[in-house]
């Protein structure tokens, strides 16, 4: 498996050659975060509540969502569509490499870089803004949160990969991706915790895969879910993981038959 380790390492060094690009990207993320942060600070003054949240909890949620977002949403799979259209994907196809592990390794390299940066950024936020946040002290919640983040990473990997596979049929692979961004921004819980929505909506959203990308892991960390709720959530997330896995494989098989290895 050393080959996949090398792919992770190469992706890491590749990102380093575009330092400025990467730093700018992170600045964008930080500014976005600060906007949401100050918005919530204004909406919830100290000693007020909004649903199950006081100021401390909502700020922790926002910080947590930011960090989980850095892990889950950093991906290279957005390049798959282009790689198919340009024929570059042939380079992977003619080698004894597992296509999915190849791209997942690239993701891991990319994620490692993003995690490193967000750790630095969060430290800076703590030092400068000195927010009071909730620290989870129960190791079980902590471990379950990590488990749910891993599932989130895999689910997002499959969703993004499937969108990339559209490249087999059309050159316009970015249009659906923009819709994904909108969905993720709104119903994954990146900007606000989903449980401030009407309970009817929340009942519906608990079956959506997007809920498990950000909202669920952060909620587990906050310790606001009971063990049965966590177990139920993990089951749904696992079901989505398997479903997306099977669907990705299926689309891949059909796509390969359609593949024209263009551009050469």
């Amino acid at each position: 498996m050393k080959k996949y380790w090398l792919i992770i390492k190469n992706t890491w060094s590749e990102t380093l050659t575009y330092r400025l690009n990467f730093v700018m990207w992170r600045i964008r993320v930080v500014v976005q975060f600060l906007t949401i942060y100050f918005l919530w600070l204004a909406v919830l003054p100290p000693n007020t509540n909004f649903g199950p949240y006081d100021q401390k909890l909502i700020l922790t949620y926002i910080l947590g969502a930011w960090f989980v977002g850095a892990i889950v949403f950093s991906t290279r799979t957005a390049d798959i569509g282009e790689a198919i259209n340009s024929g570059d994907v042939s380079n992977t196809l003619i080698k004894p490499v597992n296509f999915f592990l190849y791209w997942f390794s690239r993701d891991l390299g990319d994620k490692a870089m993003n995690i490193m940066f967000s750790v630095v950024e969060i430290t800076l936020v703590f030092l400068i803004l000195e927010p009071s946040v909730f620290i989870q002290t129960q190791i079980t919640f902590f471990a379950l949160a990590i488990l749910s983040i891993i599932l989130a990473v895999i689910i997002y990997f499959f969703i993004s990969t499937i969108l990339g596979f559209l490249g087999f049929w059309t050159p316009e692979t970015w249009a659906p991706r923009f819709i994904l961004f909108i969905l993720v921004g709104f119903i994954a819980g990146e900007i606000f915790p989903l449980d401030i929505l009407p309970s009817g909506v929340m009942k519906f959203l608990q079956f959506s895969p997007f809920t498990y990308l950000i909202y669920f892991p952060v909620k587990v960390y906050l310790g606001q879910l009971s063990y049965p709720q966590i177990l139920g959530g993990l089951t749904i997330a696992l079901a989505w993981t398997i479903l997306f896995y099977l669907f990705t494989k299926l689309v891949w098989r059909f796509g390969l038959r359609f593949y024209a290895a263009q551009g050469r």
Binding site: K3, L6, S13, E14, T17, D88, S90, R264
Partner: peptide, 21 residues
């Protein structure tokens, strides 16, 4: 007209990766 070499890295990195592959 298509390269497999990692564009931003020295060729040796691609060779080493292929060695493992």
């Amino acid at each position: 007209q298509k390269n497999q070499l990692w564009w931003d890295l020295p060729p040796m990195e691609t060779f080493l990766l292929n060695k493992e592959i």
